[in-house]
Design a binder for these strands. Sequence first.
DNA 1: AATGAATGAGAGTTCATTCAT
DNA 2: CATGAATGAACTCTCATTCAT
Lengths: 208, 208, 208, 208
Amino acid sequence: MTQTATPRTLKEKQRQEREALILQAAEEVLMEKGYHETSIDEIASLVGIAKGTVYLHFARKEDLVIALFERDLEKFLQLVETTIATGLTARAKMEAIMDVLYGSFFSKRFQLLYSLSNSVDLRRIFVEKKGCMRETWERLFARITSLLEEGKAAGEFDTTIPTSVMVSAFFSLLSPKSYDRLMVEGQMPQEEVAKQLGRIYFKGIAAV
Amino acid sequence: MTQTATPRTLKEKQRQEREALILQAAEEVLMEKGYHETSIDEIASLVGIAKGTVYLHFARKEDLVIALFERDLEKFLQLVETTIATGLTARAKMEAIMDVLYGSFFSKRFQLLYSLSNSVDLRRIFVEKKGCMRETWERLFARITSLLEEGKAAGEFDTTIPTSVMVSAFFSLLSPKSYDRLMVEGQMPQEEVAKQLGRIYFKGIAAV
Amino acid sequence: MTQTATPRTLKEKQRQEREALILQAAEEVLMEKGYHETSIDEIASLVGIAKGTVYLHFARKEDLVIALFERDLEKFLQLVETTIATGLTARAKMEAIMDVLYGSFFSKRFQLLYSLSNSVDLRRIFVEKKGCMRETWERLFARITSLLEEGKAAGEFDTTIPTSVMVSAFFSLLSPKSYDRLMVEGQMPQEEVAKQLGRIYFKGIAAV
Amino acid sequence: MTQTATPRTLKEKQRQEREALILQAAEEVLMEKGYHETSIDEIASLVGIAKGTVYLHFARKEDLVIALFERDLEKFLQLVETTIATGLTARAKMEAIMDVLYGSFFSKRFQLLYSLSNSVDLRRIFVEKKGCMRETWERLFARITSLLEEGKAAGEFDTTIPTSVMVSAFFSLLSPKSYDRLMVEGQMPQEEVAKQLGRIYFKGIAAV
DNA sequence: AATGAATGAGAGTTCATTCAT
DNA sequence: CATGAATGAACTCTCATTCAT
């Protein structure tokens, strides 16, 4: 669906721009209403196009969500990999990744990804479509896993806690629930949320 | 809807038993399929009654979910309050609560509660129906909050981390995502999950 | 779908009556407009019920058509078998069958069956659902085939013409096209059509 | 739409060639899938042109079918008229026509024409568009009719059978249903089908 | 002339909800 | 009380047709 490659022709460029608009609108509505309460019609009219036009870009409603995932997961994985390439310590890298996740660019997007992937009704979609994006997802996991193990080897992280538990805890702390509760209800600024949850997490997994 | 009071008549008792059966069936199907993919019909036939009968107990599909919450939240709150009444230290109380949440009785149930309350599509329901159950929810939060502050006062927990962040982190670590990943995919036994996540958490919030 | 068995209860009786009404309406509209130009909505409002109600009886649009077939094919097969049980000569039996097909009761219905089964777009349906009704259809063919062979053995029909050709020719002559052309456009009375086409046919296959 | 006249310019010639290609593709797909299950897009991509281009030749989907009819009906009428101009007997002429209809060139085409014209959903089209092609159709009927009457006058055909019935029977025997059943399922070669059905027919209408 | 993106009416289908029995 | 037939709004998806490029 999404041809991230170079948009040689004008047509292709326009097409991609439109697709981006659809994805953006979809993101917005999905975030507000969730998958089932969002209708294609609503997305279309938010973009200002006809229902049928959405189907020119995404053959099924599911594909829209999947594209949303692919787009952001890919970008996120790149960021993680860039961070890993840095000469920092494992802990510093993990903190940088956490900052990025909570950072201005990804915050809302990641929230969507997270709630969609957590949604019981959508599990089916992701299980079926593993081929498309499971790979990216697994690579992301693998990166975080090896980062944590790197930290263990460097004496930064507690070697008595299983790495898999650390990974889970890491992603759990990023759940939109925390985000919402602290930022929206608790009025805590974003950076503060990242900092504080990071503190708990990194102290929690620190080597004794 | 739910008359928690003593069932004076036989009829009333039967009514409550049936309601419990409906809730149980609903829990099962909701857990597996999520809110929108679950139909009233399916729940009814799992109980072995007619669709219309479900409506004698719950006027709308939403109410079923809300009742599910109320039922379990109430029970959970009671458990928390019982634990608090103990003479243990704050940290020991928190650990006990965590054990309960991951314990045999609540594990699956809490998972459902958590995913439903996290589900974007259902947020609306909970926001609208605050009246019904917000109160219990808030009390639960208040209990955990004061428990954490008790711990801070006793020098057990880090006073530089805002209590609200601690609460959020606590609930986030309980997310079904962690549960699934570690237990289902990672084959880790339940108690081990509770223990390890607890370790991270309590070390993370421990006083320096 | 169609429980032709005894309708013990009142409910069941009403159900069957309603189902009959739907089939009748469907027959009407399908006859006039064909499969694709007929909408469930149209059938429903002809019966005076809601669209959803139709789906209580027939889970898919296809099933409606299939039920239509099953209903009439079965009846027709019975008539054929009744005729065969007669002590008449093979030719007399064939003539009786032809009369029935063109007779008041079946004429219009059989027309529908014939055009639907001839329709290229519906071929798929019948091919897929062979299980349901292919059997009846094959038995009908078998009956006609053995009747013609009986006639050949009795010296009534030309043994040099393959029986399969005779069967095909028999059904072809009954096509609604002939019916329409002669009765509707040519104003020829039904019995006359049957008589004349029969004459050609039986003279054509008669033994020399 | 179709400019059957001599193609003065090169452009015009190209246009007609493309139109022929479209008709050919349409014929193919229509034969396989029927009218409603065939999309303009499918026809276009079979020709290797864009959907819009088809509309430069045929303003509506219906017109494509009509053009198909006109094309073949015209050719067929010419063949009939050529045959009639022969010095043969009426019966020999009729046999020649039957051969042509079942012959290699027309067999498949005629099948399509027949099923489309028989299709209930398309009846509307043909009724509405009489102007376009009713004339050709009627002339064809008229030719066959006078041929049969010529045969009656010559003592070849049974004068007690109404000519209109003979015409109907003639066309009915040619139905694709017979064709399919005998050729495809029964593995009978084309010439044999023509010969055998012809035998029944001509014996059936022969003078006593 | 050719394209193919855009349109939007319309179809099949589902299911929460109601209510006569 | 319990039932489940009936309802109809709402949704996804398709495709003939149009039209700017």
